[in-house]
Structures are given as structure tokens and as C-alpha cells.
Design a protein around this nucleic acid. Structure first.
Lengths: 208, 208
DNA sequence: CAAACTTTCAAACGGTTGTTTAAAATTTAT
DNA sequence: ATAAATTTTAAACAACCGTTTGAAAGTTTG
């Protein structure tokens, strides 16, 4: 085996570039240059660019989704106590720190980009691969918010997802503005801590 | 003058395609084919693709921003009364219906895409061109929410923008699911009516 | 060592992109 | 009507993209 780390080098360079510039704005030539490997090795090891994107996302989903499932199972949310449910999403996110310092941030940005760039392919993949966890998610939210109807919950979860996805996909730009205008270093952790109360309030608001 | 409507035809086709597929995923050939004009006419009338994007956005901003300014000036929000401020954004949005049935939706989606795709160029343009209105926005929100800091407001406004934009951009898909699962016809106006209380609660939540 | 297999590499492929060119067509002005 | 200015057109441009190729290099196996 020659250069056993070629695959890993590609994955790591791709992740960083995908998170920074998006999937479509990142070329295989950028990735292979950054990774110091030959251009053709992406197609040799992954088959195609599409498959590389899936592999990069899969690397995190395989860690994150079981942890999320586990966390969701460990909570028994009180009525209108929505923050524990949201924390079940946040806690395993920062366990990705083990993989790399920027892993939580890169993962969130890529999830956000995956929703707006891949035309729903990511969503379908998650539902097909982690359908049980997706069911558990809606179940826990419905338990915590028994007063609102199923369709109201449907919309609110998508409002919440939208807020998260948008902020993450434009996080680098927003961080720059925040740092320039408010002299505030805006780490992923800080943004997440700010958005949780926001989403909790919105999700559990009284509909009129 | 030969075919006086060439410029307009390009603008309208570009708008529809930008809203549906994003700026970078839409080629000039798609636009000119859809508009039934020659490929080179984009560069002749607009100079470049970048400039075309700006023109498409400008067409709506020139109508929307003065209306927003006017609406914001007409309100005097009470403390923690955030819904009137949100309505000042919503009302002029639906005045864009005069330009075309899908104009409000297209405008929102493009604003959202402009934030995540153009690397902050859109925001800089809005701030430089409509700085007064931007100031008025933060002023009215700050008045309605005197307890939260400027940077906290900055983030919450972007959370709100994200929720709105995400739901609008995926509204067609979400409408299908909603109609299939909950037998609920989901018009843009209905979605807006659902999201306003959500955003109001999130924006005025107690930060911890 | 030699054969079989895996991985790397430079080069080229076909395709798409935004942009430019220069002639043709059309409109406007004298 | 003739000249000037504007607009449209087809064609080509250079640059980039993801992917494929086939030979070279490296590694593992018999």
C-alpha cells in the first residue's frame, strides 16, 4: 500500500474547502492541490465528486446521528420544556471536537450548505439512513409541545431549521460582520448558545 | 429601437431562474434561452453576469426599501411589542405582487441566496445604498426590545431572516408535504401568518 | 525473485462557463 | 433618403470543470 493516508488527506482537505467555499465552488483541483495528492486520485478512491461529498458528510453523520439518538432517548422533556430537546442536538455536536478543532463548525456549515445546495438530496439521505432517529426527533418535540397541532409543529420545526441552516451557511460572513461591528469573536459555540433560547421561544410560542 | 423589451425579458427570466436554482447554478445560456434573446445581449445590456445579478436585486430593492422605510416610520412600537415591527416588513413585501404573482417569494429567496452566495456583497450594497433604512430598522427593533444588546439583536435578526428565507425558498416542497400530510393548503400568506408569532417570540425572548 | 495486484501520475478528453468579436440588422437623426 | 448610432446575431474565445486513460511506480503475495 502506497501512501495509505491519501484517502484521509482528500477527506480532510475537502471538508475544509467545502465548509469555507461550498460544494459547487470547490473544485477537485483545489482539493487535490491542498491535499498534495494527484487529481485522479479522487476519482480512484471515491468514484466521483458527488460521492466524495457524500463521504465527507457521512464521516460526521455516522458519529453524530447515533449520539443524537442516544441523547434524545435519555431525556423526558416536561411540558413546554423545549430546551432539553434542543440541547440533545447541541451536545453531540461538540463531541465532534475529537475529530478536529473545527469539526463542529464544519459539520454544521456543511449540513446547512447541503440543504440549500444539494436540492434535498441530503435530506432524503438522512431520512432513508436515519429514519428511526428522525421519528424520535418529531416524537420528542411533540411530547414537549403537546398543545400545538401536528401541522403547526411541522412548520415551526422548519422555521427553526431555517434559522439554523441560514446562520450556519452564512456564518463566516456573519462572523466577520459581528467581529467588525461589535468587536465580538463569534465562535460556533457562541452562536449556538444564542440561537437555542431564540428557537426555544419560537417553538413554544402561543399561536394565535 | 429594436425589441425594447430585451432588457426586461432578461431581468424577468434571470429572476425566475435565480430564485429557483441560485445565482451560480444559473447560466447565462439558460437565461437567454428562457428569455428568447441572444446570449451576447446580457453582456451588451448589463456588462457582466455579476452586474446582472445586481440589477435583478436592485429592481426589487428600489421598490421595497422605500416602502419599508415608510412603514417603519409610521409605527411607534411599545416595549416588547415586536409584531408591529415585523408587519412593517411583511406589508410592503406583498406590494411586490404588483410586479408579478411570484415576486414576493422570488425577492425573499434571492435575498437569502444573496447572503450565502455572494460573500456579503449584497449586505454591503444594502448598507451603502439604504444605510438610513438599515439604521431605522435597528432603531425600531431596539426601541421595541430595549433589554437586549446590539450584538444580541444582530444575531436574532439574522436568525429571523434565516427562518423566513429558508421557509420561502423551500415553500413549494413544504407546501406539498403539508398538503399531503395535513390536508392544508399552504399559501405564502398563510406561512407568513404562522411565522410572525414564531419570530416575535424568538426575537423578544429572555436571553440567559 | 517473479507474478499479481494496488496505487500514483501526467496527460488528455469532452463539456460547460462567461466573455468577446465583428458583421448584420434595425432604429434614429440629419 | 442617407448617414449615424444602436441593437442583434452567430461564431469563436480562453478558462475551467469532472472524468478517463494507460503507462509507471509501488506493494503484496506465491
Amino acid at each position: 500500500m502506497a501512501k495509505t493516508d491519501t484517502k484521509l488527506r482528500i477527506l480532510e482537505s475537502a471538508e475544509q474547502l467545502f465548509a469555507t467555499h461550498g460544494f459547487t465552488h470547490t473544485s477537485l483541483r483545489q482539493i487535490t492541490t491542498e491535499a498534495n495528492v494527484n487529481l485522479a486520485s479522487v476519482n480512484y478512491h471515491f468514484g466521483s465528486k458527488k460521492s466524495l461529498i457524500q463521504s465527507v458528510l457521512k464521516r460526521y453523520l455516522e458519529i453524530y446521528m447515533p449520539l443524537l439518538h442516544q441523547n434524545l432517548n435519555q431525556i423526558a422533556p416536561q411540558k413546554n420544556e423545549i430546551e432539553p430537546v434542543l440541547q440533545a442536538f447541541i451536545k453531540p455536536l461538540f463531541e465532534l471536537n475529537k475529530l478536529g478543532k473545527q469539526s463542529p463548525r464544519n459539520f454544521m456549515i456543511m449540513i446547512g450548505r447541503g440543504y440549500s445546495e444539494t436540492q434535498g438530496h441530503l435530506r432524503k439521505y438522512i431520512v432513508s439512513e436515519y429514519g428511526e432517529t428522525v421519528l424520535l426527533i418529531t416524537h420528542k418535540f411533540a411530547n414537549a409541545l403537546p398543545n400545538i397541532s401536528a401541522q403547526e409543529l411541522f412548520w415551526r420545526l422548519h422555521f427553526a431549521l431555517g434559522a439554523l441552516v441560514f446562520v450556519m451557511s452564512s456564518s463566516s460572513a456573519l462572523e466577520e460582520i459581528a467581529e467588525a461591528d461589535y468587536a465580538e469573536s463569534a465562535t460556533t459555540e457562541k452562536i449556538v448558545n444564542k440561537i437555542v433560547p431564540f428557537l426555544a421561544a419560537g417553538l413554544s410560542c402561543k399561536s394565535q
